[in-house]
């Protein structure tokens, strides 16, 4: 070894082995969280706080503008909402919309699953699905409404038709993407059990692709909801009781602007409830429980 240039060798140190100290001396390994820490770790608490903040901003801006015909303050909208629920059957109108939505949504979901199941089992089916989704997914469902009115007349069938269209393609696209992303190992494990055909799709592919399917269900729900409200702006669900969209349209015609906002708030509330309660519950019981999504 060259003198001077070499770095010093590491020092020689003695070895040791020791008995592990008892853990009691460490103290608490886990400490309970304080009430504030718990509250801030609740996603719903944080969201409600944000909503309150937004409502306050609305109220402040409305009061400052002082022109209730253009932008009523939040308190006026709340009053109108309460009044509409009590005296103008707002809840019944929302329910009418939801029932129509549910019909279109369920039919769309079933069709999407059938088409995607066909698409994964045959190559022609796969080509057909990609072509159809490429054609119809960018086409706004509301653009089909005039045709639907021509075919099915003024009424629920036309609405269900455009709803199915708005649900089917985004969901089929997501589900198919989810199916193709299922790992080869998991596929082989499923076939190893002797599964094939429908049982293979139901027992392996659908649960394995569930994160994508759930994302598709959420997108489809949002598409369906906005399509429905937009379609109802054109005409009511039936002659007796229009849905939420019709409620908004009627009140705009009568210049009941707080009621218009009340209708919009109702649309938003239903959207929030669907996302925050229904989809959140599905997530907690499936993809989060399974560790497929954080």
């Amino acid at each position: 070894m060259a003198e001077g240039t070499a770095k010093p060798l590491p020092p020689k140190r003695s070895e040791f082995e020791r008995a592990l100290p008892p853990l009691g001396a460490v103290g608490d390994v886990a400490r309970p969280l304080s009430a504030f820490e718990r509250l801030t770790s609740l996603a719903s608490a944080r969201r409600i706080f944000l909503l309150l903040l937004l409502a306050a901003a609305w109220q402040a801006y409305g009061a400052w503008l002082a022109n209730p015909l253009v932008f009523p303050p939040f308190s006026a909208v709340l009053d109108a909402l309460w009044d509409s629920i009590l005296n103008r059957n707002l809840l019944w109108r929302a329910w009418t919309s939801i029932v129509v939505l549910a019909k279109g949504y369920v039919i769309g979901v079933v069709l999407a699953l059938v088409i995607t199941a066909l698409a994964v089992s045959t190559r022609v089916g796969s080509d057909l699905l990609s072509t159809l989704t490429a054609m119809f997914n960018p086409l706004p469902a509301i653009a089909l409404l005039p045709i639907a009115l021509l075919w099915f007349g003024l009424g629920e069938t036309s609405l269900v038709f455009v709803l199915v269209h708005s649900v089917l393609w985004p969901l089929a696209l997501n589900t198919h993407a989810g199916f193709t992303a299922v790992s080869e190992t998991l596929r082989m494990a499923g076939r190893n059990y002797g599964l094939s055909g429908v049982r293979y799709v139901v027992l392996i592919l659908i649960p394995a692709a569930f994160p994508s399917i759930l994302a598709g269900l959420k997108i489809a729900w949002a598409f369906a909801w906005r399509t429905l409200i937009a379609a109802e702006l054109v005409f009511g669900v039936s002659s007796r009781s229009g849905g939420l969209g019709w409620f908004i349209f009627e009140n705009r015609n009568e210049l009941n602007i707080p009621e218009v906002f009340a209708g919009l708030v109702m649309v938003i509330l239903i959207g929030l409830a669907m996302e925050g309660v229904v989809f959140r519950a599905i997530e907690a019981r499936t993809v989060r429980l399974w560790g497929m999504q954080r």
Binding site: S183, L186, A208, W290, M292
Partner: peptide, 10 residues
């Protein structure tokens, strides 16, 4: 299999 994802996570 070698891969850990051979177990259905659900």
């Amino acid at each position: 299999f070698q891969e850990f994802d051979q177990l259905p996570p659900w």
